[in-house]
Nucleic acid binder design. Structure first.
Length: 324
DNA sequence: TAATGTTTAGACCAGT
DNA sequence: ACTGGTCTAAACATTA
C-alpha cells in the first residue's frame, strides 16, 4: 500500500480503487454529479499517477461506472449540449465504504429491483434525487434563508441520525478538505493549485464548521459562504434543466449529498408518499469532532484504513443491499 | 471520428 | 479452496 507522501501521492498509485476515486470526484462536485470528463480531470488533477496511461485507467473507470450499481447516470437535458451523461452516486450507496473511508468498501453495493425506496433505474434514481431535493428545499424554506437548523426528524431521519461518530481520515470530506485547504500544508494539493472547475465543496466545509470542528478555517475563509448559491457557471450540472444547489448541510446534521433543484422540475413531481427514509451518505457519519490534525496524522500513517468504529445506518440497510 | 457507455473475460489479491 | 472485490483488457455500440 503506497504511503501517502508528505504533500502528495506523487507518482505512486493512490490507495484508492477506481470506485473510490470516482466517488471522490462526484462527491467533490457541488452538484454531486459530474460528466465523465470532469471525473477524469478530478483524478488527474489530484493524483499524478493517473496522468499517465490514461487509456488504461480511464477504460477501467468507465467500466466501473457502468458495472457498479452505486453509480447512476443522469442524462443531460437537450439544452445542455455536451458529450455523455452526468454521473452521480446512487442515493443508497452512502455506507458503501467502510466507515466512510474510501480506502475500503464495506460491501458491494447492489440495487434490488424490489427496492422501491431506492430506485434501481437511473431515471428513477434521478427522480428520486429530485424528490429528495424538493423535500430538502421545503425544509430549507421553512427554516429561513440560512442553513436549516432542522432537527433530525425534519428529514425523517427516523432515529438513524448520527449526531456523532468517527469519520475516517480517508473519508471523502477529509480527503477533499485536506486537498483544498490544509493549514498544515500536508495536502498534496498544496503543491497543486485548486482547479477552478472544482469549487470548494461548501456542503462539506460548512458541515464541518457547523459541527464546530471540521474545517472552520475554510468556512471562515470566505471562499464560499454557505448561504451563497453555487455559481452555476461553475458547471452546468443540473439535469432536467433545473439549477442545482447543494444543500447537503444542516446544523449538526448531515444531509444526503445529492443534486438539489432550486425549483421543482416542470414535470410534475409525483406526490410523495411517506418521505423516504434518509439517504445515507458518505458524510452521514460525521463526527462532532475531527481536527485537521487527525487527518494529517492519519494521512501519514502507514495503515490508515483501520476504522475503530463503524457506524452502520439502519436506513441504508433498508435501501440498499450489500451483496457479499 | 473521438468520446462515451456497455459488456465480457481473465487475472490477481485478500478474507474466510 | 472458495468467494468477492478490484483491475485490466478488449470488443462493440452509441452519441455529439
Amino acid at each position: 500500500m503506497p504511503r501517502p507522501g508528505r504533500n502528495t501521492y506523487s507518482d505512486q498509485k493512490p490507495p484508492y480503487s477506481y470506485i473510490s476515486l470516482t466517488a471522490m470526484a462526484i462527491q467533490s462536485s457541488p452538484e454531486k454529479m459530474l460528466p465523465l470528463s470532469e471525473i477524469y480531470k478530478f483524478i488527474m488533477d489530484r493524483f499524478p499517477y493517473y496522468r499517465e496511461n490514461t487509456q488504461r485507467w480511464q477504460n477501467s473507470l468507465r467500466h466501473n461506472l457502468s458495472f457498479n450499481d452505486c453509480f447512476i447516470k443522469i442524462p443531460r437535458r437537450p439544452d445542455q449540449p455536451g458529450k455523455g451523461s452526468f454521473w452521480a452516486l446512487h442515493p443508497s450507496c452512502g455506507d458503501m465504504f467502510e466507515n466512510g473511508s474510501f480506502l475500503r468498501r464495506r460491501k458491494r453495493f447492489k440495487v434490488l429491483k424490489s427496492d422501491h425506496l431506492a430506485p434501481s433505474k437511473p431515471a428513477d434514481a434521478a427522480q428520486y434525487l429530485q424528490q429528495q431535493a424538493k423535500l430538502r428545499l421545503s425544509a430549507l424554506a421553512a427554516s429561513g434563508t440560512h442553513l436549516p437548523q432542522m432537527p433530525a426528524a425534519a428529514y425523517n431521519l427516523g432515529g438513524v441520525a448520527q449526531p456523532s461518530g468517527f469519520k475516517h481520515p480517508f473519508a471523502i470530506e477529509n480527503i477533499i478538505a485536506r486537498e483544498y485547504k490544509m493549514p498544515g500544508g500536508l495536502a498534496f494539493s498544496a503543491m497543486q493549485p485548486v482547479p477552478a472547475a472544482y469549487p470548494l465543496p461548501n456542503q462539506l466545509t460548512t458541515m464541518g464548521s457547523s459541527l464546530g470542528t471540521g474545517w472552520p478555517h475554510v468556512y471562515g475563509s470566505g471562499m464560499i459562504d454557505s448561504t451563497t448559491p453555487i455559481s452555476m457557471a461553475s458547471g452546468d450540472y443540473s439535469a432536467y434543466g433545473v439549477p442545482l444547489k447543494p444543500l447537503c448541510h444542516a446544523a449538526g446534521q448531515t444531509l444526503p449529498a445529492i443534486p438539489v433543484p432550486i425549483k421543482p422540475t416542470p414535470a410534475a413531481v409525483p406526490a410523495l408518499p411517506a418521505l423516504p427514509a434518509p439517504i445515507p451518505t458518505l458524510l452521514s457519519n460525521s463526527p462532532p469532532s475531527l481536527s485537521p490534525t487527525s487527518s494529517q496524522t492519519a494521512t501519514s500513517q502507514s495503515s490508515p484504513a483501520t476504522p475503530s468504529e463503524t457506524l452502520t445506518s439502519p436506513a441504508s440497510a433498508l435501501h440498499s443491499v450489500a451483496v457479499h
